[in-house]
Amino acid sequence: MQIFVKTLTGKTITSEVEPSDTIENVKAKIQDKEGIPPDQQRLIFAGKQLEDGRTLSDYNIQKESTLHLVLR
């Protein structure tokens, strides 16, 4: 499924993921596309910071959901 990751600069990254993918996994995909190390990434969805060990389905993230990427 496709999800969108919006950066603070307003850029939107499209990523191909599975509901069973972990947040860590998603951060790795963002690193592949943007070159941002996962340890600098914080992903936010519905006002919550997403934890690395959890999966997209844990957070009820569905296709075409938009996550927000904040850098630390």
Results as ranks from 00 to 15, higher is better:
I61A: 02
M1D: 03
L56S: 00
I36R: 03
S57K: 12
K6W: 06
T22A: 04
E18P: 03
L43M: 04
P38R: 14
N25C: 10
R54F: 12
M1W: 11
I30L: 08
L8E: 14
T22E: 02
S15W: 15
D32Y: 10
A28W: 12
S57L: 11
E51N: 07
R72E: 11
Q40C: 12
K29A: 07
T22V: 04
K63Q: 12
K63C: 07
K27E: 01
L69E: 01
L71S: 08
E16F: 13
I23E: 01
L67N: 00
K33P: 04
T9A: 12
K11R: 12
T66R: 05
I23F: 02
L69V: 05
D39V: 08
G47K: 05
M1A: 03
V5R: 00
S65T: 08
V5M: 04
D52F: 04
E34Q: 07
P19I: 08
T12C: 12
S15H: 13
K48M: 13
I36K: 03
E64K: 08
E51F: 08
D32I: 13
A28V: 11
N25S: 15
L71I: 12
Q2Y: 13
I36M: 05
I13V: 06
G47H: 05
T22S: 07
A46R: 14
N60T: 04
E16S: 11
P37H: 10
D21M: 11
K6N: 05
K63A: 15
S65Q: 08
I23M: 03
D58M: 05
T22P: 04
N25A: 13
N60F: 07
A28P: 01
L71P: 08
V17D: 01
V70W: 09
K63F: 07
T55W: 03
L69C: 02
K48Q: 13
M1Y: 14
G35M: 05
G47L: 03
T55Q: 07
T9I: 07
P38I: 15
F4I: 07
I36F: 11
S15V: 15
I23P: 02
L8R: 12
N60I: 03
F4Y: 13
S57V: 07
T55N: 04
G35C: 05
V5G: 01
V5D: 01
L56V: 09
K11G: 07
G53D: 11
L69A: 02
G10Y: 04
Q31E: 09
T7I: 13
M1L: 06
Y59F: 03
N60Y: 06
E18W: 13
E24V: 08
T14N: 06
R54P: 04
I36D: 03
N25P: 02
R42Q: 12
S15D: 04
L71W: 09
I23S: 02
I23D: 01
I44E: 08
